[in-house]
Design a binder for these strands. Sequence first.
RNA 1: GGGGUCGUAGUUCAGACGGUUAGAACGCCGGCCUGUCACGCCGGAGGUCGCGAGUUCGAGUCUCGUCGGCCCCGCCA
Length: 595
Amino acid sequence: MPSVFRTHYAGELSLALEGEVVAVSGWVKRIRDHGGLVFLEVWDRSGLVQVVADPTSADYEPMKQVRLEYVVKVEGQVKRRPSGTENLQHSTGDIEIRISKLTVLNACKPLPFLIEDDAEVQENVRLLYRYLDLRRPRMIENLRVRHSAMQATRKFLSDNGFMEVETPILTKSTPEGARDFLVPSRLTKGHFYALPQSPQLFKQLLMVAGFDRYFQIARCFRDEDLRADRQPEFTQIDIEASFLTLEEFLEVNERLVEKIFGELGIALERPFRRISYKDAIETYGTDKPDVRFGMHLKDLSAVFSGSSLEVFRKAMESGGVIKGLKPEGLKEFSPKEQSVLEEMARSVGLGGLTIVRREGSALKGRLTRHFSEAETSGTIETLGLGDGEWGILAVGPNAKLCTGLSQVRLYFRDKLALVPAGSHAFLWVVDFPLLEYDEAEGRYVSMHHPFTAPMDEDIHKLEQDPLTVRAKAYDMVLDGNEIGGGSMRIYNAAVQERVFSLLAISKEEARQKFGFLLDALAYGAPPHGGIAYGLDRIVTLVVGASSIREVIAFPKTQKGTCLMTQAPSPVSEDQLQELGIQLVKSKAEAEGLDV
RNA sequence: GGGGUCGUAGUUCAGACGGUUAGAACGCCGGCCUGUCACGCCGGAGGUCGCGAGUUCGAGUCUCGUCGGCCCCGCCA
């Protein structure tokens, strides 16, 4: 699209245009001033082109005045570079623009950091000047991949009869789930909207309304603590469909994912492998296993049931278990490396590790002299230790052990390079329990959410044996990351009320919070179900970034602040008054301290 | 709520056991340089060592607190 500013993008120039007069606009990335000859590299979103001037050139003087990141328009003739001076690293490396006119469109102050892909700059500096950080080619590429993923999603789903519908951002606070972000209402003082944790209820209502197939690339909000893969606001590819069985629905989703990843250059095999929640936890210690390598967790509780070791016995008496794994292909494991592992294990909640090594029919390690013969041979057999191989043992409450050992497993995956670069494993995790027991709250809570349908054959156990009831729920896992999850929904008001009552949500509360949903389910709700994908995580995986902040244009810090805009920030007394809000003084202020 | 880690020039970092004037590279400013492409060479400016206490004759260095970035546990249906 030619304009006054450009006839071409810089990256489009080539020998085919030799001799033509072109105009390019962009930023000055490099200046090589030889006193006589001056070279500039001018960059735009498409790439770089070299501009050259010598003392006889028109606008030679302006060329000498240019500084890094000035915005310039250059006009001149496309020339083949003199033989021997081509630069094969750039697609435009065999040509250059002989300057005839240089226009400085805008100057640029000296930069807070160099805008280059390989400049390692502290993240707080990058976030403060995010607009400069985003000027780096890698960041633009990350967001381009994100754009492609969104486009592929919209194309595929539209082509398959799904309709994109927007749902409210100002909505109602609901119990269950994450903490809500609240928005005070001016018109109804003392009342609050909540930002949606997901469009969950609305998409189900759209199914009741007969939309049949819905999707939305939806912003979601959860006021919980942040992680490398969690932001307070994030984007879901949100989908809901009616009149599809679980199998049919999963099949559509596999095709969608094939399309998205295909667009991004990643081929995958269908149908996806499946694993039950129970098997995933037992074998990998997590419900989002990376199945590209083995190193399965083994239960050694039986082996050590009569252990004389106090740490083992005490842990098991208080309901704990002993589990272990064998790092595949681990040969050398120096004391220093061992302490690094132990440090890492502590940080993920493991009390301690026992590191053992098989030597002949014996085990060597810190605690092994307390092992009986049967315990030694049992450990060797259960972990499958060959001579000279290492084993890692840990003891503790099962849940904690699983979390920790699954991390240890990933630690060795990276340390021992167990997964070839570029290989991927897509996986469905299925057969989730409908409920789990929340010790802190003393009640059952939904594993997925309260609208998840129990499996038909388990419904009769709802009241008698709730923890064994399986849900029609599924997670999509890629290389150890949960990238999507969903379920078939309850579409019968009576079943929905039974589930609410199991969750200790009273009739009154259910009516108050979800009355509209219960009503809707009673007005001819079709069988339906859905899924939501974490777009940020998918893009992060595809571009190989270490945090979702790398694929979000303007992300928040771990404390939920934006370093660039300074949000969140105090508001004026007038604003508060209008909303009927009075701030409670912090403890320090109340005590009259200077804060 | 808890654990870990980092904070020194615009940027990335180095600063031995607490010692005299806190260094390097890149960037910035000035000079030289006609085929460079991370151009080269010479010179220069640039520092509240995050902030606040404390120990000490003396603190970038040790102690405590605090603020901020990052990683993790809890939390995130």
